[in-house]
């Protein structure tokens, strides 16, 4: 297990280094002179020069890369050019909306998908299964942000059960904040829940065909006992992969859904930064998102080993 963990840690470190190099070269090398790019075409030469100095563009690329990485590691994400504020603080504020939204949506997605997938698998081929599968076909096909608009139309504008947008802030009211995130979380989770339901079902059905399930029945376990004791844990292995990938999708999907509900999350920050060519903000937010995804994959890898003893020995 230790060997497995070490090996994963090593590949985690390599992934992070390569990813950061990629981001750095796309943002700071690709557009040519970063300062003139950020200032636009009509900028005064002296303001461009000032920005160059501020960004440390007189240094070599290597030095700039290390100072950027060093900053990221110590929590200094640089200073936003347009807001004149530390990026770290801005990101932290926004993260308090985006992250809870993604987690909320992931929980919803799991809460819907596990029972629905197990239910459908246990009734394979019957009316209940066909209904659930039909519903997931629709769920997978619905564009999340459009579904969000429909939710707003129905529950906020017509029924007035939920706010149509905005966010009161956690300090203000946890309850109202949760309420403000509920419609976005539902909109975000629906397509993912549909995918996860399908994966859960097919993974379980694969398990039902395994020889060891027949062995379990031959021992005297009922079909239900065999499913719970032997099927679920094995079926979880592919499901975990999907959950890991989904969190990344949810986190970035949140960026889009936030636009529908006017939530002050990472989405708004990043889209403003793009229109204002504030590359410093873009660079740091992108690195942060990629970092999250890579860390997530690492955690999932460890979870695999916890579930499957065969992995602990393998490389």
């Amino acid at each position: 297990m230790l060997r497995y963990t070490l090996k994963r840690l090593l590949s985690l470190a390599i992934s992070l280094i390569v990813a950061s190099l990629l981001i750095f070269s796309i943002i700071e090398v690709a557009p040519g002179d970063v300062a003139s790019f950020m200032m636009g075409m009509n900028a005064q030469p002296d303001t461009v020069a000032a920005l160059r100095a501020e960004l440390g563009l007189d240094q070599t690329k290597v030095a700039r890369y290390f100072s950027w990485i060093g900053g990221m590691v110590t929590g200094d994400f640089g200073t936003s050019y347009t807001y004149r504020a530390p990026v770290a603080q801005m990101v932290a504020d926004r993260l308090w909306v985006s992250l809870p939204l993604a987690v909320y949506a992931l929980l919803l997605s799991i809460l819907i998908a596990f029972p629905a997938g197990i239910f459908a698998a246990a009734r394979r081929g019957r009316a209940a299964d066909v209904t659930v599968m039909g519903a997931t076909q629709l769920g997978v096909a619905i564009p999340g942000f459009w579904f969000a608009m429909m939710l707003v139309l129905l529950f906020a504008i017509r029924l007035r059960w939920f706010p149509a947008g905005g966010f009161p802030g956690w300090d203000e009211s946890i309850w109202l904040s949760l309420k403000a995130l509920t419609l976005p979380a539902i909109a975000l989770s629906l397509p993912q829940a549909a995918i996860l339901t399908r994966v859960m079902r097919s993974s379980l059905l694969d398990m039902l065909g395994e020889d060891f399930m027949r062995t379990a029945r031959a021992k005297g376990l009922s079909a239900r006992q065999a499913l719970w004791r032997h099927g679920i844990r094995n079926a979880l292995i592919p499901v975990l992969t999907i959950i890991g990938m989904q969190f990344a999708v949810l986190l970035t999907g949140a960026i889009i859904i936030e636009q529908v509900f006017y939530l002050p999350g990472l989405g708004r920050l990043i889209f403003q930064a793009i229109t204002q060519r504030d590359l410093i903000v873009v660079e740091s937010v992108v690195m942060l998102l990629v970092f999250t995804v890579i860390m997530l994959n690492f955690v999932i890898d460890l979870a695999y080993a916890a579930i499957d003893p065969r992995l602990r020995l393998r490389t």
Partner: peptide, 29 residues
């Protein structure tokens, strides 16, 4: 009925299969 069968399987009648490599659950001791 199924309850009776579950009681009999493993208790009154046991079974051994052809393929030992896949007959055991890989994630349980």
């Amino acid at each position: 009925d199924e309850d009776t069968l579950c009681h009999l399987r493993g208790n009154q009648v046991g079974m051994v299969f052809q393929e030992p490599m896949t007959a055991l659950n890989p994630v349980k001791s």
